[in-house]
Computed example of a mutant assay.
Amino acid sequence: MLRSSFLPSAIVGLVCAAVFLAVRGVAGGLSALFGAALALGFFASGLLVLRTLRNLNPMAIMAAAMAVFFGQIIVLGLILVAARRVDSLDGPATGITVAVVVVAWQIFQVRSFMRTRQLVYDPEAGGDGVGT
C-alpha cells in the first residue's frame, strides 16, 4: 500500500509545486515542495511503523496505530510551529499543497486497500459459518 500511495501522491505534490512556482514564484514552489514532503512524510512514516507491527494481534495493532498517530500529530505540530518562524515560507502554497496531497494519498490508499485480498473471517476457526 505504501508504494501504491506514495508514488502517485508524490507526483501530485510535484504538480502542485510546479503550479505554485508558476503562479507565486520561487517561494511558492519551494513552499509547495515543503508541504508535499510534510504530507508524504506524515503518512509514509505511519505506514512504515505499522508494517513492522502487522503480526501482532488486532488489539495490539489498534493500540499501536493510535500511539503512532498521536506521535505523528505531535511531530507535525512541532514542525508547523517551527515553520511559522520561516518568513520566506508561503503559507497558502504550503497549506493548499498539503491538503491536495492528503486527499490524493487517501484516494490511492483506499484504492490500494480495496485491491488487496483481506480475509473477513478466520479460516482456522473451523465451523461451517452457519449458526456459529
Rank of each mutant, 00 (worst) to 15 (best):
A63R: 05
A63D: 03
A64N: 01
A64Y: 06
A65H: 01
M66E: 04
M66I: 01
M66W: 13
M66L: 13
A67E: 06
A67W: 07
V68H: 03
V68K: 01
V68F: 07
F69M: 05
F69W: 10
F70S: 10
F70T: 04
G71H: 15
G71Y: 06
Q72P: 11
I73M: 15
I73C: 08
I73L: 13
V75D: 04
V75L: 13
L76E: 13
L76T: 05
L76D: 06
G77K: 11
G77V: 14
L78S: 06
L78W: 07
L78H: 08
I79E: 11
I79A: 04
L80S: 09
L80P: 00
V81Q: 14
A82R: 12
A82F: 15
A82Y: 12
A83W: 05
A83N: 09
A83P: 13
R84P: 02
R85N: 14
R85T: 15
V86F: 08
D87G: 12
D87Y: 10
S88V: 15
L89I: 13
L89R: 06
L89M: 02
G91D: 04
G91V: 12
P92A: 12
A93M: 10
T94V: 09
T94Y: 03
I96R: 07
I96H: 09
T97V: 12
V98N: 01
V98E: 02
V98S: 03
V98T: 06
V98D: 02
A99W: 03
A99K: 00
V100Y: 11
V100A: 09
V100F: 07
V100L: 08
V101N: 12
